[in-house]
Every structure is written in structure tokens, then in C-alpha cells.
Write a protein that binds this DNA or RNA. Structure first.
Lengths: 209, 209, 209, 209
DNA sequence: CATGAATGAGTTTTCATTCAT
DNA sequence: TATGAATGAAAACTCATTCAT
């Protein structure tokens, strides 16, 4: 580890041609698979190149470092989450919105976001040494989520300190969903129960004086 | 050379003299520091030996691998947690126990457990590829905690499915404490508020019909 | 790091370009030199790489271990021997074959086989912990040699138990040639005398009632 | 390998006391066992000390190096062989000595010498980098053996060049016995047959004009 | 004398990255 | 551009040997 002069993280070149675009796709897919299967420390760029069916030389043509591959993947996850949460936000203005519906929607969204490839998600956000840029972006997204929630809460409940409540709610959702999804296999309690319980938990919290 | 079977995780030699006991201590301390500072992938056994002021040979005299060092450290954390939770359990039989007191006690215990060295805690339980033995032990501890809670809940509340509630509560505590403590530095919300909010959250959940 | 299964003996990558084929050649040549000069325990992969004028990384690109290098070398020797003995066998059917000619031919072949690089030969087959595969192949070759000899013996002599005689003859040749060639330098008796004496020995044995 | 400044080979101290003598014995016994079981490269001084039930410090109290242990063992073997061959020599003057008896006696002696611990014998004289002193002594012993044989041969046969014949005979015996004894397990031909065949071989050779 | 803890140079091996083809 | 051979710094780990107790 701690290779001498860490190369940059941003992609080396913007691939415009189709073929290049396809290579990038194939590389990211391979990265996802290998990372999920072997963890950050167990993954090598040669594994990724081999899995992608691409030469190691080509890999470095598109990504300047191992970190850059993971970062690109993480970025995609973050972008997907941003999109999903933006969609969610669009519904928050609905006039017939109730607290129950809101909570249900948020829980569903969070579970969706984590469910696709839990192992990859875990490796990406727990093991990979992500750069500040991405970490900041994740934080910004959570802030935004919390702010949006704080904005509607007063209309649905009469609790004090809506910002704090919103923030706690967001972290609660994020953190518990992550855990349940990641440990799903070993978990003795079935997924649906967990989802229902999560809703009950959040509702109880947001109703508590 | 007819390489012998791969190094295991269990310590190589039982230290008998107090001198070697001290070396083990110093090595574990150094491991904790280096792990917290550089993460799992960034830590090397040479770093640890250097930090401990001990030769690399001595390190391998007592620990057959990098994994073994981390495992020993994780084991200590788990043992400390077991002790702390056993203490907590001893109070659960008190006749004047109320739900509020119980929740306060649990929250305090969890925060204490995570607070000592949050970065190390994170690296140890998120990055290090811990062996099954330890992971099972952690799970057993959580199970035990959940069972103990489930046993007293009926006396304090009238909710259905106490086992499920207990389990969710334990995971909730574990997971949120971990997150808050680990991200403490960056967190805009002060620790005391978090603790109070955590109590409110758990209380609300355990009172919800 | 989830260390992958221990390195095997089979080459890691099939060299496709001629450049890499040359590297493999150079590595094997260097292995032969270093092994002959320093013995198995005294040889290191770094010695070999340095002697080959190749980076240590390249060495491991083609050979997963020190053992694999020696095994590849041993395999070449065995193959050369198989070829040489097959040639010898081709002549065994000649109608004008006499016992004298046969013995002369066998002795010559054996000495040739050992003479090229005696020290390497010694190290390779006495010191190197060769895998079962190669050892079995050597044994098979000797068996084959003995069978071929046993098949012609009845035509040339009238001894009983030709299989036993053939087997003893082969081992005798193998073992004495090996010794004389290996200790040639220190030997007070010149090579030609040895060869003549070996012929006399074998002839006497195969003629003895 | 090739440790910086190779320490001497001769024992560090002459142990006079009984206890010391016993420790030396125990160490040599352990060396024999470990060497036979793991080969030269696979043997460590720590293995030997552990097997002997002696501390590593004590080992170095009596033997200055790993090589010295093996050398001491080899020396014992050589001394035993010298003794055995001297005994053999004592009978050579007997008036009723025949060639048959002589050969029988020599073959028996050689087999005896190798039979005790074939694996150790192989490791000791093929793998261990024995010092010149011992190698010279072995050679001297063989010379002596050959000379003694050459001295009686004229009385029993009428061949020319008795020195050469004697030398070949000795090497033949040495080398074939070694091989058969070492590969005994895998050998398809039973030991007794081998012994008989060895006698036949030597007799045939010594009778051949 | 015995002990066994400590040492550290030396070995094997890996893998991110470069560069000739 | 793609390829994959080559690189070598750095990591894990060993073991003969020393030396404080």
C-alpha cells in the first residue's frame, strides 16, 4: 500500500467513441463483480482486467489507478441515489401526503437503493479509501435529504426541532437499511418484517412528542 | 523448503516470562494505533513492529500474521463488550426498573463501548477480514443482549412480539451508535443531543403499540 | 488479503510472444547455472533473476516458485533422456545386434545423458524436492528402459530371469554413471577407463549363468 | 542461505560432564530424526532443539551451527563405517577365504551400513553441504577399502589390474547399496533378491578375464 | 550452565503501473 | 489504440544466531 506518488483519481480521458464507452462499461462491471467477491484489499487491477476481458494496458488507458475504478463505481451509486431521492422529493409536495405514506416511501426508497448489490455497496463505502470529493458528495446528498424532510415535517406533525428529527431519521434509515441488507443472509428475521418494523420505528419516532 | 502449513490466527507462542508479555502488550497497542491511523490495507506488519519499537522477528514470534494481530485486538474489544453488557444485565432484575432507566442505561453502555477509539473500532469491524470465530462471537453477544432485553420488556411495556422488538432495538443501538461515534468529527450535531435523541428514538419505538 | 491458494508448480502464464519465450529460456538457463553453482538450499529466486538479467517480477510471471523452476529444468532433462533412450530402443531390433554392441550402446547413452552438466544433474535429482509427477515419470522411463532390455536379452544370451537382470542392469548403469560423472573432477581414474570398465562389468553380469 | 560469516564447524566445547554428554546425545538424536523427516533445507535449529527437548540456547552451547550438527552426525556414520570395514579387513587374511565368501561378506557389510536409517543417510550425504574434512575422510575410507581388497584379490583370482577392479567393486557396492536401500519402499524387487543379485554381479565382475 | 526472548538480514512473493511492440 | 511483457518497490514471513536474565 501507500504507493509512492498516488496518481490522480479522475478518468484519464473522456472516451467519446462507442467502443471506448463500451470498454469503460465492461471495466466498471468487472470492477463491481471483483470488488463484491474479493473485497478491496483482495482485488487487483489484473483481476479486473481479466474479468473484463480487457488487457491491463487498456484498463490503465481509461482509469489512472485502482482507486479511480472504485471511485467511478461509487460515483455511479451516489448519482443513482441522488436521482432516486430527487424523485422522492418530487412527491413531497403532494397535497394528500400523510406521515404514513411519506415514511413508507422513504423506507422503500432506501431499501431499493441498498438492495441491488449489497456486498458491493459494503465494500465500496466501508473498505475502499474513497477520496474526499465523493465523501463530500455523499454528505451533501444526505444533507439535502434531511433538509427536504425537515421542510415537510411541520405540515404532517407538530414536533419541535424538525431539522434534528429529519437528520436523525435520515441517518437511521441509511444505517439500518445498510445493515439489514448487508447481513441479510445471516439474519434470522425476514426482510418484510424488517421493512415493516423500520416503518413502525420511524413513525413512532416522528410522532413522539 | 517444504513450506509448513499456512500460518494460523492463534498466537504462536504462549508468552511465559513477563518480558514477553510486555512485548505482546506493546505490539497490540501499536497495532491499534497503526490500524486506526492507516486502515487495514494501509497497515503493514513492519509499520506495527516499528511503532512498537520491536523487531519484525519478535512480532512474528507472537503473532503468525497481520490477521492474527487484528483478531487479537478485536477479541479484546468483544470481551470488553461482553463484560460491559453482562454488567448491564445484572441491573435488569432491579425492582424499581423503569423503561426510561433501562433505555438510558443501554444507550450509555453502547456509547461507552464505541467511544474509546472510534477509528480503530471502525477499521476493526468494517475493514479487517475477521475470522468466523470472532464474527460468531459478536453475533452471539448480540443475541444474548437481545434475549436479555426481550426477557424484561413484558414487565415494562405491553407490546406484542417482544423478541422482535428487542432484536430491532439492539441493532438500532449498535448501528446508530457506531455511525455517530465513528463520524463524530464531521458531525454537526453535538454528542449529547445525539444521546438524548437516541433515547427518545428507542423509547418511542418501545412504546409504540 | 484473502491470500489465494499456494502457488503451484505449473507455469503461471503461457508465453505467447517470442519475447516472453526468450525470457523463459533465459530464466531456465540461469536456474541451471545457479543451481549447479550453489546447490538447492543456496539458490534463491533473486540469484536466478539477477543471473538471468531479468527482474524478479518477470521470474514470477512465468514460474510461481523456486520449485517450479527446478521442476521445469528436471522435466527437460527427463524429456531429453526419454528421447535418447527411445533412439537407443530403435536400434535394438537390428538383426546384427550382439551383446557387446548393445552394452556399448547403452553405456555410451547413459554417459552422454549425465555428462552435459553433472553438477546440475546432481543437484536436480539429489537435492531438489521434486514433485511426484516428475519422480513417477523418471521411474516410468526406467521401467520402460528395463522392459526394452528384457525383451532383447533372450535373443542374445541364455540367462534366466531376464526381467530381473534387465532391471539390475539399468539401475547399475544409471547409478554408476551418475556417480562417476558427478565426482569426475576428484576421480583418480580417467573417464575412458571407467567407460571400458562399466562395459566389462555389465557384460560379465549379463553373461554370468 | 549463505549467512554472513559462516561460523566454525567444530564443536564449541568438549563436554566432559555426564549431563553435557547426555545433552549432546539427545541433540544428535533429534537432529537425525528431524533431518530424516524434513530434509536439510526443511530442517531448522529450532525444530531440532524442540525435538530434543532442549532450549535453543543450549543447542548453540554445544554446536556452533546447524552445519556442525549435521557434520557431527555424518562423522559418526563415517566412524561406524570405518569400524565395520576394519572388522571386515581383519578377516581378509583368513587362509580358507574364497572369492565367494569375500563377496558375500562385503555385500553384507555394505547393506548393514546403509540399512539402519536410509533416509537420514541420503539426506546426510546427498543434501547436507558437508565440509571438506568429512568428504576427504569418506574418500580416504573408500580408498582404504579398495586397497585392502586389491591386496587380497590376486590370491583369489587371476585378473589383471587388481587396483582398478577393486576400486570399481567398492564404488559399485557403495552406490548400488545406497540406491536400493534408499528406494526400498518403492522398489518392486524384494531386498533378498537384490542382495543375491548384487553378489552375483560382483562375482561375475571379479571373475571376468 | 540453561533458558527463551529478541534480533534482523535475507527470502519468497505480490501487484500497481509502465512501456515497447 | 490495444496488448501483455516487464518492472521493482514493498509486503509478508523465516530462521540462524545472540544475549540478557
Amino acid at each position: 500500500m501507500s504507493r509512492p506518488s498516488r496518481p490522480a483519481i479522475s478518468p484519464r480521458r473522456k472516451p467519446r467513441q462507442q467502443r471506448s464507452q463500451a470498454t469503460v462499461e465492461v471495466l466498471l462491471l468487472a470492477t463491481a463483480r471483483v470488488l463484491a467477491a474479493r473485497g478491496w484489499a483482495g482485488t487487483t487491477t489484473n483481476h479486473i482486467a481479466a474479468r473484463a476481458g480487457v488487457s491491463i494496458g487498456s484498463l490503465y488507458e481509461y482509469f489512472p489507478s485502482k482507486e479511480a475504478l472504485a471511485a467511478a463505481l461509487a460515483l455511479r451509486h451516489v448519482e443513482a441515489a441522488e436521482t432516486r431521492l430527487a424523485e422522492l422529493g418530487a412527491h413531497l409536495g403532494d397535497c394528500e401526503l400523510t406521515l404514513e405514506l411519506l415514511v413508507k416511501a422513504m423506507v422503500s426508497a432506501m431499501i431499493e437503493l441498498h438492495a441491488e448489490n449489497p456486498r458491493l455497496h459494503r465494500v465500496l463505502f466501508e473498505e475502499v479509501p474513497l477520496g474526499l470529493a465523493i465523501r463530500r458528495r455523499v454528505r451533501a446528498m444526505e444533507d439535502q435529504h434531511a433538509r427536504a424532510l425537515a421542510a415537510v415535517l411541520p405540515r404532517l406533525t407538530s414536533l419541535c426541532e424538525p431539522e434534528l428529527r429529519a437528520r436523525v431519521t435520515v441517518e437511521l434509515l441509511e444505517t439500518l437499511t445498510h445493515r439489514w441488507v448487508v447481513t441479510a443472509k445471516a439474519e434470522p428475521i425476514p426482510r418484510e418484517r424488517m421493512q415493516a418494523e423500520l416503518e413502525r420505528l420511524v413513525l413512532a419516532y416522528l410522532r413522539a412528542g
